[in-house]
Each structure stands twice: as structure tokens, then as C-alpha cells.
Design a protein around this nucleic acid. Sequence first.
RNA 1: CGGGAUGUGGCGCAGUUGGUAGCGCACUUGGUUUGGGACCAAGGGGUCCCGCGUUCGAGUCGCGGUAUCCCGACCA
Length: 505
Amino acid sequence: MNNNYTIDTMAEISNKEVTNREEDYSKWYNNLVVKADLAEQSAVRGCMVIKPYGYAIWEKMQHELDRMFKETGHQNAYFPLFIPKSFLSREAEHVEGFAKECAVVTHHRLMNSPDGKGVVVDPDAKLEEELVVRPTSETIIWNTYKNWIKSWRDLPILCNQWANVVRWEMRTRLFLRTAEFLWQEGHTAHATEAEAIAEAQKMVGVYADFARRYMAMPVVVGHKSETERFAGAVDTYSIEAMMQDGKALQAGTSHFLGQNFAKAFEVQYANKEGKLDYVWATSWGVSTRLMGALIMCHSDNNGLVLPPALAPIQVVMVPIFKTDEEKAAIVARMEQLKKEMEAKGISVKLDNRDHLRPGFKFAEWELKGVPVRIVIGPRDLENGNVELARRDTSTKESVPQEGLAGYVSELLDTIQNNMYEKALEFRDSHVVKVDTWEEFKEKIEDGGFLLCHWDGTPETEEKIKEETKATIRCIPIDSCVCEEEGKCIYSGKPSKRRVIFARAY
RNA sequence: CGGGAUGUGGCGCAGUUGGUAGCGCACUUGGUUUGGGACCAAGGGGUCCCGCGUUCGAGUCGCGGUAUCCCGACCA
């Protein structure tokens, strides 16, 4: 047994004397991220190193998202990493929301230490105005848009930027909450309120679509409550996913910013009547947190399970042989089959490392979540078959080499759909309607989404959070089951609709 | 920023009353293996987080730093 590749399984975890279930799930998750070769803690506090295999997944996500953004009329641009401190303070709520987690550049030069040991910051090189490493780019972008927008003819501006941002979080976790993370942030400017709202809704829809089609992850689309809203937004939409421990994860957000930033940065345009008006704004983003969502949504006791649409390697081929002659014949056949599959756009890895035994390779590729494994040994070569194993169902079957590429191509689609159905079934079986406070306190311990009536006040929301650690994940947009009258589970006051409560990452 | 813990080969850890720095995995070489995480043999690799102190002698004891992790508050 190679201890370096064992991971704490869910089963093992649940057999332990668990006092804090959340903590143990986290441990399992972290272990999985590291062992599956996706990422590791960096030497820099709270930052992570994304390893090549993990980064390849992110690149696939980027590629699909970028295409979707362009299909919806957006263009990419790039804005500075540094934001003058004064910019951040222009929008009052915005600065309040981010002030506590900013990395600040105060000097621009180092010098040799007077004691001869290493270097120190040169006190003479102090910046007149400190620069904040962007925690998000609304301020620098709106300061720029001010120069771009004069007339109604300049609108709308539909820009996206792929970038890194820094938020000095107190506690960090790989992919879910790192001090530095990669993301995309869309920033749009519109002539009318209605158009901006439509944009914010459209983009949260793009995220939901991406989650479903590529990540095979069902999400709920909804409004954030006032307290959970983005700092500086009028309305925040989010997609909320459920992880396998029943906790919620906010996987993407889209904000209707009203005229807040336009007013803060004095961005006015001349409308068709020749009158000056402030422009309407949105911003929307998803980050490398999606990687965390992907991992926690699908992984099992044997490691990662990747949806074919995002798997860097969709098919791994493992030869089994005793002699060099056997190896040569089998690998030659595999090369042919590999080419046939690649011609259909399938990404294939032929693992012909000969110092490792097949069992080791099986386990390793399973840990890495490769959707399909194809094995050919002397027996298979003889009778013209391959052994084909599915990662999502852990099943094996014997398939003819003839027409293999076509079979695999269809199978990848099947796996993609199956993974979504499985995740959807899990999610739906962990959504419950709750109508009393006693029941709420009991059910929240089991995890999952609780559909409850809420009186709409931040005070009630805060008290529920204090007592149960549960927060309002969202006020669902399109879920008709929520549209019914009732009484707030906490205060008993009247409510027009249910909202989703859950504990969250 | 409050509470708790931990720093020992690449990784995970042991190290007793202070007395030659160890184990497993990984790595290198050779050989036998190969249909679910192989085995044998040989080998390389350490300023025991840093500093000061106690001592004939410190990985171990004391003091002071520092870093990381966990729990809170905050968050994509």
C-alpha cells in the first residue's frame, strides 16, 4: 500500500468520533486537492500554487466561459492591479465592505540593511498615496469609464477582465478562499436601469448554464438578501450550489450596481434629449472557487470525479503486458485507437510508463478523476476488445476495438449527463420545507437547503445566523415552490415567499 | 485581532530521566515482477524554525522572537 496516495475516505471519516463534521469534511477536501495534484499551499501566507493538472481544469473553464461571454456581446480588457487608496473610498459601502481585507503598497524601493543582513524597506521611498492591490476592480474601472463615456452613443460598455485579485482573508482554504485568487470580472455600463438589470440577470443565467452544462452541477439562481449583498450593489444575484456535506457554496455572483458607482466617479452621459444622466452599472464574476465547487460536488472515496466537459484528460489508456514483444504490440494498437479518438476531439493519455504496475496507474488516474479508462492486455489484443471502466459509476465492461472512438464519444456525453442527474438527485433530496423554529434547528444540523418563510428583516436573519450559523443563501427567482404565503419561522410575521437557508462555506 | 496547537531529510512522523539524529513513504542504482496501489538488495539526502541562556554536553530544559495550522469574527 502506497500511503502517499491514500486519502481519508468519507466512510472513514464518518466512522470516527466526529465532534465537528464540517472540520472533517474540510480535511478530506484539502487532502483530496493536494493528493489529486491540483494545488498546494504556497510558501506565501494564504496563497496557493495551482499545479499543472489543476490549472488545466481552470483553463477549460476559462475557455468555455470566455466563449459564452463573447456570445453575449462582451469583450475582454485589462485594468491595473494597483488602485490608489482614494479610489476605494469614493463609494461608501464599497470601502466598508473591503477595507478590512486589503493588501496595501506603501513603498517602492528596498535598500541594503544597515546591519549588513539582507534588505529592508527604504523609508525614503514612501509613496505619497498608498496603492491597494485590487480586491475587485469596480473603482479603477469606473474611474476609467468616466473618460470613455460622454454620450448615449458610447453605451453600453460590455467589458470583462480575466485577472487575479487579493483579499487578505483571516482564514484560507485551497480554491475556496485564498488570499490571492484568479477570476473574471465583468463590468458593464448602460443607459437605462432596465437594461442594466437585464444584463445582471442575463449573466447570472450564463453562470447557471455553465454550471449545469460544463460542471454538471445544479445551482439555484436567486437574489441575495440585503445583508449578504455585494458592498456597493443595489441587488445581487447568485448561483448557489450544494456540496456533498450539505453545505451551500456561492459559486458566482452578478450585481446590479444602480447608479452608485456612476455617482461616486461622476460618470454622466448626454442622453438623446441632450440632458446629462448618470449611467447604470453591473458587475459579475466567478473565480477559481468554481474548482472547489467541482471537487466537492462530485468527488467520491476514490478521489476526484471530473465531468468530461472539463477533464483535461478524458480517456486514459493503460497497457498490460509481460514481455517486451507484448508491450510493443499492445502499445502500437493503443496508439492507433488513440488517434481515432483524438480525431473525434477526445483528449487521450496513453500511460505507458513501464516502472509502474497497472494497479498503481488505475488508482492514480481514478484519484485524478479521469472519466474513462481503457485497458488492453494480451487477452484483449487476442479477441479484439478493450476493458473500459467508467469513473462516475465505477463499472467495467468489455468493448470491441472496432468503433471504439464512436462508442467513447457517446459515452462521454452519457457520463456528463449522468453526473448532472446524480448531483441533481442529491441536491433535491437535501432540500426540505421547514415551517417551525424547532424543526429548523433540528434540520439544519443535517445540512442541506431549508425552504422557509422569513419576515424580510435583517434583524431576523442576523438572529437566525447567531443561533444556528445558517444564513439566507438566496431568495430563489424561478422556483414556483417558493411562491406561497406563510409565516416567518422565527418571528411569526407574515411572509409572501420562502427563501433558502443553509450553512455555507 | 482574541483562544488553542505545532515547527526534526521532499512528504508524514518518532525521539524516554539532557549523552553518536531515527522510522515509513518518496528518491537513486541493480535484479525479479506487471489483469487493482509489487518485492529483494544496496545507496543518497538533516544548521532538529531563529536567537540568547542553563549545562562538561541541548532536538530535548528556560526566556524571547518568528512561521504555519486549527477554532472564532470576515469573505468569491
